[in-house]
Write a protein that binds this DNA or RNA. Structure first.
Lengths: 114, 114
DNA sequence: CTTTCATATGAGCGTTTATTCATATGAATA
DNA sequence: TATTCATATGAATAAACGCTCATATGAAAG
């Protein structure tokens, strides 16, 4: 390895300065961490189709209400879903349009390669 | 909850039929799982700037060569990076353009919200 | 061929995470 | 107000994960 910390045309320091700050990097990692679980992925794909209440999601994924509820909390903490009450049920929906874009890119990647 | 498994205008079955198959869903989750770690995020941001060899990355992130090497294996298994030898060093680079798009969307999400 | 040096790898350890089970909460309705 | 029912939550457990340490690999240089 070069002693001057130079890789090709850029120094390590130069690259370091162009990186987003530590906090943003953690935020990005935390966001993708939420997408990195199959149960949550399924919930999100379900919500692409329609608003859904907890029990509908539990049926759709064939999982317990509790498991879904825990995961919805994770999704809500990451501001990926919103909820609203309607009668006795609480309906969940996707929070913003970036989510679909992110998934489209991800889907392209796996389809092209594997 | 409705007894007919109907949420708004769509039945659970109808939504279920529109979901990608189980295998694809797992692949998508596995892809995002790779993005869900701050060390790997930093490596990827470094590679946005330049091809880098293992020791450069270790310096950039101030981490051990071994830790970086393990993470590069994860990234390579997910087909997110490629490698090529040049003399004694092995240079890593990003594998495709989707990666930058995914990050741009993710970055927008965190900037808008938190 | 031998040595060197960058990188890769396997085992071990502590931490995080997803699910389950039992139970709490709290809005709607009777 | 009391009951019901959908949802939320806390503790416990098992699995997955990231890092470290020691060591292996293998191409390049001597």
């Amino acid at each position: 390895m070069t002693k001057e910390n130079v890789c090709k045309h850029k120094s390590i320091l130069e690259i370091s300065e162009k990186m987003p700050c530590e906090e943003k990097l953690y935020d990005v990692a935390d966001l993708f961490k939420v997408f990195g679980d199959c149960t949550r992925i399924k919930i999100i794909y379900g919500l692409f189709e329609s608003e859904l209440c907890v029990n509908h999601i539990a049926q759709l994924l064939n999982m317990t209400q509790s498991a879904i509820s825990h995961q919805l909390k994770t999704l809500k903490d990451a501001r990926l879903v919103t909820s609203r009450r309607e009668g006795k049920e609480i309906y969940y929906a996707l929070a913003d349009k970036h989510i679909k874009n992110i998934f489209e890119q991800g889907y392209k990647h796996i389809c092209e390669k594997e």
